[in-house]
Simulated scan of single mutants.
Amino acid sequence: MNFKFKAIDHIQLAAPKGSEELARHFFNRILGFAEIEKPEVLKKNGGVWFAYGNVQIHVGTEDPFSPAKKAHPAFEVENLEALKQHLLKYAVDIIEDNNLPGAKRFYVADPFGNRIELLEWDK
């Protein structure tokens, strides 16, 4: 093949129309992602974009909306236990999972019900 995949550019998550403030609260204020400017031509579609280092999450709105319950992004985290304690302070429900050998992990749902996996590989 004459091509290669370099990286994931961004992850798109869906949310109900008009839920940008709820997305800002969760991804910016709780998880610490910075809001980034959407291109002018895309602003009319609603939604909001976030970045943490080179990880981007694009929250797009759709109507009708249906959350992703099985399909999900998985984020590798440094100091997963500290993140877990932080999320618990904000009353974010944690779903423990110890079925992946060599990793600690749990799942959370964003405010719209989309599944998100957070994991840390054993060293």
Rank of each mutant, 00 (worst) to 15 (best):
M1E: 07
F3A: 10
F5N: 04
A7T: 15
I8Q: 08
D9H: 15
D9M: 11
H10I: 07
I11D: 00
Q12Y: 06
A14Y: 06
K17P: 00
G18M: 08
E21L: 13
E21R: 12
A23K: 00
H25I: 07
N28Y: 06
N28L: 08
R29T: 05
I30Q: 06
G32T: 03
I36D: 00
K38G: 00
K38T: 01
K44P: 01
N45G: 02
G46E: 01
F50A: 09
F50I: 10
Y52E: 03
N54C: 10
N54W: 09
V55H: 08
Q56G: 04
I57F: 14
H58N: 11
H58V: 12
V59D: 01
T61A: 11
D63K: 09
F65W: 09
F65S: 08
S66H: 11
P67V: 10
P67Q: 12
A68G: 02
A68M: 14
H72N: 12
H72Y: 12
E76P: 00
V77C: 07
E78Q: 13
E78G: 07
L80R: 03
E81M: 08
Q85W: 01
L88K: 15
L88S: 10
L88A: 14
K89N: 14
I94C: 07
I94Y: 06
E96S: 12
N99C: 03
P101T: 05
G102F: 03
A103K: 08
A103H: 05
K104A: 08
K104Y: 06
F106Q: 02
A109C: 09
N114P: 04
N114M: 07
I116R: 01
E117I: 13
L119T: 09
D122H: 12
K123D: 11
